[in-house]
Design a protein around this nucleic acid. Structure first.
Length: 484
DNA sequence: CTGGGGATGGGGCCC
DNA sequence: AGGGCCCCATCCCCA
């Protein structure tokens, strides 16, 4: 892994959004922290402004939470009741349920009312889903879990504002949805189409489908390296990053990164470039923790099916790698390789400092990381130089030479020097998340905390130090001056 | 501290 | 392009 160039790492918590929504819903049901009550024909629905503003463009604009709005015109905190008689109570309840559960549960007979409410309130995905069902299957009562879709004719979308605006008579009065009339700070609807006459009491209403859809139109100037919501969610799951190739004739929105045509793909979480076609989903599971491959014998789960396959050898007793020199058999080919070095007595991995030889490279690394090689610790090299100060063993091949230089640098950062210039060392997902987080924040504050807590990370990984060579140099220099 | 086994994640090759 | 299979490097754990 290329150590995070910017020192930032992403630690996903896939369940967070669900848990958050679930708790908000629980608060709604108990009325806890509810600061907004929606009413419809006498029915009252306690809710949260922030949630409604998040889910509904109407409320976003109502509360002045829309980007670029200063909120001056928004409804102040004093208003707590919003009368929405234009939306039927059942539809309003369904939309609120959707807002807090991400699931729309409605009767087919109420589909049209929900569609109308979704259009009025600017809940685009619900409106789209309702239209799809009404248009495609009409009265399909079974399809109650409606997918969130953005399928629409974006070519016809024009910049539009809320077709309706609330009227607040006083802080204690309830607002009503009325036709927009050029609200200050907002241009009037750029394109007002023939209205839905069913909402007659709202006066001239627009066809909500196009007026709210702009809300979900991809932002053309979105930074190139910022994954969209769709990319994010897709990458967090098993899907590969993608753009819909057919929407709007392709080519336009988002400048169309064509990852699919490129073998290397960048992880949206850790920014690592993953080589190999189809390898990104595999990598993403290291972030999500998803382990879709379960052993049928013992239930242990794995992130990869090839690891499960190897695991199954433990149950079947299969050890496909026999040693030609002894009866030993092994699960892995590299286990056999390690084993063969025992027969040959080869110890090709020699510590350049104490010249102790090891049969395995990782054992050499461990040796050099640990406290066994005192010479390394006393003769600490400057950062960026070969820690040994001498060429490695001649038994090393060139490939090994290259490896050693890299490994040595990694060791310096990992085990002896700490992150270079405070940049956390990204050593891969093998490091537990708390440790990764600790390293991510292990800037000056983290180091100070580290020293204050005896040099241990929050969960006791005392072997991890965050001191840099510069820090040690400074300390040594200071000590030298004190001696003078 | 060391040797050894096993787990994990990335890359290459192939289908 | 996606996935299977394999190898490799690295890490963790235990004796």
């Amino acid at each position: 892994m290329s150590p995070g160039e910017d020192g930032l790492i992403g630690i996903p918590f896939p369940e967070h959004s669900n848990e958050l929504l679930s708790r908000l819903n629980a608060q709604r049901r108990t009325g806890l922290l509810c600061d907004l009550t929606l009413t419809s024909h006498g029915a009252r629905y306690p809710t949260h402004r922030s949630v409604m503003a998040a889910v509904s463009l109407y409320f976003r604009r109502l509360f002045g939470a829309e980007e670029g709005e200063d909120g001056d015109e928004g409804v102040g905190d004093s208003c707590s009741v919003c009368q929405l008689d234009c939306v039927s109570p059942d539809a309003l309840a369904a939309l609120l349920e959707f807002a807090y559960t991400a699931t729309l549960t409605i009767r087919s007979s109420g589909m049209r009312e929900v569609l109308k409410g979704a259009q009025l309130l600017g809940i685009q995905c619900v409106a789209d889903a309702c239209r799809d069902i009404l248009g495609e299957t009409g009265d399909n009562p079974t399809n109650q879990q409606l997918p969130s879709r953005r399928k629409q004719d974006r070519c016809s979308v024009t910049r539009a504002v809320s077709p309706v605006r609330p009227v607040w008579r006083s802080p204690d009065e309830t607002p009503e949805l009325l036709p927009a009339q050029g609200r200050e700070g907002h241009p009037p609807p750029a394109e007002v189409q023939d209205g839905d006459t069913r909402a007659s009491h709202l006066g001239r209403l627009v066809n909500g489908s196009s007026h709210w859809s702009q809300e979900f139109t991809p932002i053309p100037h979105r930074p190139e390296d910022t994954p969209s919501e769709e990319e994010e969610s897709g990458a967090q799951g098993r899907a590969t990053p993608h753009h819909s190739q057919s929407q709007g004739g392709g080519a336009s929105a988002g400048s169309g990164r064509k990852r699919k045509s490129q073998t290397p793909q960048q992880c949206p979480v850790c920014q690592k470039i993953i080589h190999g076609a189809g390898k990104l989903p595999r990598h993403m599971r290291t972030h999500t923790g998803e382990k879709p491959f379960q052993c049928s014998a013992c239930g242990v789960r794995f992130t990869r099916n090839d690891k499960l396959k190897i695991h199954m050898r433990k149950h079947t007793g299969e050890r496909p790698y026999p040693c030609p020199s002894c009866p030993a058999r092994f699960l892995h080919s590299y286990d056999l390789k390690n084993h063969l070095s025992l027969h040959s007595g080869d110890r090709p991995f020699e510590c350049p400092l104490c010249h102790k030889a090891f049969a395995r490279e990782d054992h050499l690394q461990r040796h050099r990381k640990g406290h066994s090689c005192l010479e390394l610790r006393t003769r600490r090299p400057r950062r960026g130089t070969d820690p040994s100060g001498s060429p490695p063993s001649e038994s090393f091949g060139q490939q090994h030479l290259d490896h050693m230089s890299v490994a040595a640098a990694a060791q310096l950062l990992e085990g002896h020097g700490g992150p270079m210039q405070g940049v956390p060392l990204l050593t891969g997902a093998r490091m537990p998340y708390p440790e990764l987080l600790w390293r991510a924040i292990a800037g000056p504050v983290g180091k100070a905390l580290d020293k204050a807590e005896g040099g241990s990370s929050p969960h006791g990984s005392a072997s991890v130090t965050h001191r840099t060579w510069e820090e040690e140099d400074e300390e040594q220099d200071a000590a030298g001056e004190e001696e003078k």
